[in-house]
Write a protein that binds this DNA or RNA. Structure first.
Lengths: 131, 131
DNA sequence: GTCGTTGCAAAGCGTTTGCAGCCTA
DNA sequence: TAGGCTGCAAACGCTTTGCAACGAC
C-alpha cells in the first residue's frame, strides 16, 4: 500500500486511445467496440492489448463491468453513483437509470445474506416508444 | 402446428436422466452441473448431449434460461411464477427468490416503456452465512 | 538501460457441429 | 426397419497467456 505499489503503470499511446474511446462513447462498450473505436486513433492496436488494458483499468477502478444477459460483457466509466441499466429491445442501446431499490435484503429468504444486487429493465426507450 | 410436427422427439434414457436432474435439483443448473447430476443415473453421458437436450427442452418450453452476470447460462424448469434469483458468492449456487418488485415502471425515466425486468441478489446463502 | 507494455499466435474454456453407429418407436 | 439420438472429437468464438521486440520513464 505504499507509493511504490503503483509505480508500474505506464501511459502508453494504446492506453490513451482506449481511455479516449470510453470517454468519447459515453455508453457501455464491449471489447470489440473498444478496439474499433480506439483503432481510429491508433491503427495496429491488438485485441489482446484491449483486453489487458480493460483488466488494468478495472483493477485501478477506472472502469466497471456491465454484464447484460445474452450479451458479451460491456464496460463503462467507473466513479458514477450506484445505478442500474435499461436495455432497449428496439434499438439495443443501454441507458443508465438513476433509481434504485430500497430494502433488497428483505427480498431474500431468512438466513440469506445480501451483499449486492443488479437490476435490469427491458423495454422501449424514449425514442423507440414515441414514434 | 399439427400432430406430426412433434412426432420427432424420442424419450431416451439420456433425456430422462437430464429431466430428472432438473426436477431433483429444484434450482437453476448450468450444463456442467446437469452433466454431473445426470451422470449419476446414466454414466457415459456426454456434454454435447446435455447441450443438445437443453436446447430441445428450451424449444419445447420445458426449460427457461437464467442468465447471470459473470456466470455461464443456467437453466431451470419453465412454467413457474415470475421470480428472481439469488447468487451465492461463496458456493456459487443459484437459488430462486419468491419476492419481486412493485412498480418497476416508475424506476424508468419519463417516456421509457418498461416491458420486463431482471433482478439478481448476491451474497451468502443460508449454508454459507452460518458456519 | 529497465522493465512494464505491445502484437502476434497459440492456448483455454464453454459451446456447437460433423459423423458413424446406436436405439426408440 | 427408419430416422432421431448419442458419444467422440474437431471446430468455433471469445478471452487469456507466452514470448520476443518495443518504448515510456
Amino acid at each position: 500500500m505504499t507509493d511504490t505499489d503503483r509505480g508500474a503503470s505506464r501511459d502508453t499511446r494504446q492506453r490513451r486511445a482506449i481511455r479516449a474511446a470510453f470517454e468519447a462513447a459515453g455508453r457501455p462498450l464491449d471489447p470489440n467496440e473498444v478496439l474499433e473505436l480506439a483503432a481510429g486513433s491508433h491503427s495496429g492496436l491488438g485485441i489482446a492489448t484491449v483486453y489487458r488494458n480493460i483488466k488494468m483499468l478495472l483493477e485501478e477502478g477506472w472502469l466497471t463491468a456491465v454484464e447484460l444477459p445474452g450479451e458479451v460483457t460491456h464496460y463503462e466509466l467507473a466513479g458514477k453513483a450506484h445505478h442500474h441499466h435499461f436495455h432497449c429491445r428496439a434499438c439495443g442501446k443501454v441507458f443508465e437509470l438513476n433509481a434504485c431499490l430500497p430494502n433488497v435484503q428483505k427480498l431474500a429468504p431468512l438466513g440469506f445474506q445480501v451483499s449486492g444486487h443488479d437490476l435490469l429493465l427491458y423495454g422501449a426507450c424514449r425514442d423507440c416508444s414515441c414514434p
